[in-house]
């Protein structure tokens, strides 16, 4: 039985796909057989971030419609033995995903994998609802910025009322907060919401804090999940995040401004 984890946010552009790619890859690095499923039908991008865009033949919707089987549609990662991607379809049909079809595919994946990461589209339309419906756990990706925090709260409402667990009266989805694009310098200057501020408002367990980092763009440019850039701050922050997701107790890093030398302190920069 796989654990199903949805990566969601409400707002777009906060780092859901970057996070899905990083966490899925991190779980595989730790030896867990993992599949990342792109639920963003019509706007497929997980394949680009994972660097397998030219290997897409069949997709999620083909499998739902019975036009291909899972084995044909799953793309095996070239770097890691136990990592797979199920790409989204580029169809414009908004109703391509339906509960019965998604459930059938997830059940089939569940026999094979330890973790299923569902990369949700932005918004609160059917694609996002499908991505969260079957989840056991949720990673709510949030930027320290007003619109993102508000939308995250909205999604938390959906997680607790619109999921299968809620409808069947099962224990609720386990919710994790992942703060991304965090800039300790701006926090120190009082220009950005701090970890504690966001925690006070959303009141769910903090899973990780990913610093704003040049490594993220470099990673997506080259189709390498940023977690594989183990020298980078963002890569290390994602590695810590994956450890916490697996229940390890890891101290938070990159929350404070690194100490500067005397010259920097005088002249700035």
């Amino acid at each position: 039985m796989a654990k199903i984890i949805v990566v969601t946010s409400g707002k777009g552009g906060v780092g859901k796909t970057t996070t899905s790619a990083a966490i899925g890859t991190g779980l595989a690095l730790k030896g867990h057989k993992t599949v990342i499923v792109d639920f963003d039908i019509g706007l497929r991008n997980l394949d680009l971030i994972m660097g397998c865009e030219r290997r897409v033949v069949f997709d999620f919707v083909n499998v739902i419609n019975g036009e291909a089987n899972l084995k044909q549609a799953l793309i095996k990662d070239k770097r890691l033995e136990n990592l797979f991607i199920l790409p989204a379809s580029q169809t414009r049909d908004k109703d391509a995903l339906h509960k019965e079809g998604v459930e059938r595919v997830l059940n089939e994946l569940s026999d094979e994998f330890d973790f299923i990461i569902c990369d949700s589209p932005a918004g609160i339309e059917s694609g996002a609802m499908m991505a969260l419906y079957f989840a056991d756990e949720a990673i709510v990706v949030t930027n320290p910025e007003v619109s993102s925090v508000r939308d995250s709260d909205r999604i938390l409402g959906m997680l607790s009322s619109k999921s299968r667990r809620a409808e069947q009266g099962l224990p609720g989805i386990k919710e994790h907060l992942l703060l991304t694009r965090y800039n300790p310098e701006r926090v120190q200057k009082g220009e950005m919401l701090s970890v504690d501020d966001v925690n006070d408002i959303l009141a769910i367990k903090l899973l990780g804090v990913i610093p704003e980092s040049q490594a993220v763009l470099n990673a997506s440019n080259s189709g390498q999940p940023v977690i594989l850039d183990a020298d980078s701050d963002a890569g290390q922050a994602y590695l810590d995040t994956v450890s916490r997701l697996l229940g390890e107790d890891v101290a938070f890093r990159f929350l404070n401004v690194e100490k500067k030398g005397l010259l920097k302190r005088i002249f700035g920069g």
Partner: peptide, 20 residues
């Protein structure tokens, strides 16, 4: 924070406005 910033730091703290 650099020395220059120190003299310019009379700006309003926008993060606390955001939180409220």
């Amino acid at each position: 924070m650099s020395l220059l910033d120190y003299f310019r730091s009379s700006k309003k703290n926008t993060a606390s406005t955001a939180k409220e």
